[in-house]
Write a protein that binds this DNA or RNA. Structure first.
Lengths: 126, 126
DNA sequence: GTGGCTGCAAAATGTTTGCACGGAT
DNA sequence: ATCCGTGCAAACATTTTGCAGCCAC
């Protein structure tokens, strides 16, 4: 049975209100402004619980800390190899990849993540 | 100018000889058997240099340590969410995704990685 | 009242770095 | 002779965990 604590609500709200893709530490610092007693461990615990419950999404980013996304609907991401900027891609999720791979591998495929890498407009001008 | 040291050759060879997708620590332990003085820091340094030079590939794995791949040709991976098993997928690399995303985002897209997740045959039977 | 959740500190994990020395060029 | 790469240890970054008390149920 899962309890509905103040801390979990704060974590959830902070992720929802973030326009970008915050790291655990960014969430922690945001919440601390209004609720200075919260602990980083609690932030991590709740981010993981919320991700388990599919209320937020956990994204694994190459060469940096995990990020969290308020958008639960599957979608893709792009990372600038120069400045680290990290953004959504607005293409349609390709369900058919999952079924194709399921046939080829005899895995029970649940999902896939795509991370594109390249130079963002600003960095490519330099 | 890059020097050709024994240690770098050992790291390169260890990655090539590995059938799977070893972590830095696995490479380190393999090499230590024949060359006990090698340091983990040296293994990390050389793995990163080799990946920079595109002699091996570095793969970011959700919720676990980075892995290294002797296959330089771009291809996709799948991870079992239950036992952590990690394998190649033998589909064709979809170049057209990179150009499509380049058009949509005005990034200079270099590449993309896909990691599928699901249950491997063994785990799905349980 | 109970047991899941918290804060804190410590530990665990994964990776990088400062430094003096040694070896490849 | 140069100076890049090494081993070592320490630092660093990120995330998890043990524990005693607390609070939502």
């Amino acid at each position: 049975m899962r309890r509905n604590t103040i801390q979990r609500q704060l974590v959830y709200t902070a992720v929802q209100n973030s326009k970008s893709h915050p790291t655990a530490d960014e969430i922690y610092n945001t919440i601390k402004e209004s609720y200075p007693d919260i602990s980083l461990a609690t932030v991590y615990r709740n981010l993981n619980l919320l991700a388990q419950d599919s209320e937020i999404r956990k994204i694994s980013v190459p060469d940096s800390a995990d990020r969290f996304d308020h958008t639960v609907k599957p979608h893709y991401h792009i990372k600038c190899t120069c400045c680290g900027r990290f953004e959504d891609i607005v293409t349609r999720y390709m369900d058919q990849l999952d079924s194709a791979v399921a046939e080829d591998t005899s895995y029970l495929v649940e999902s896939h993540d795509i991370v594109f890498q390249g130079l963002c407009p600003r960095c490519s001008r330099a």
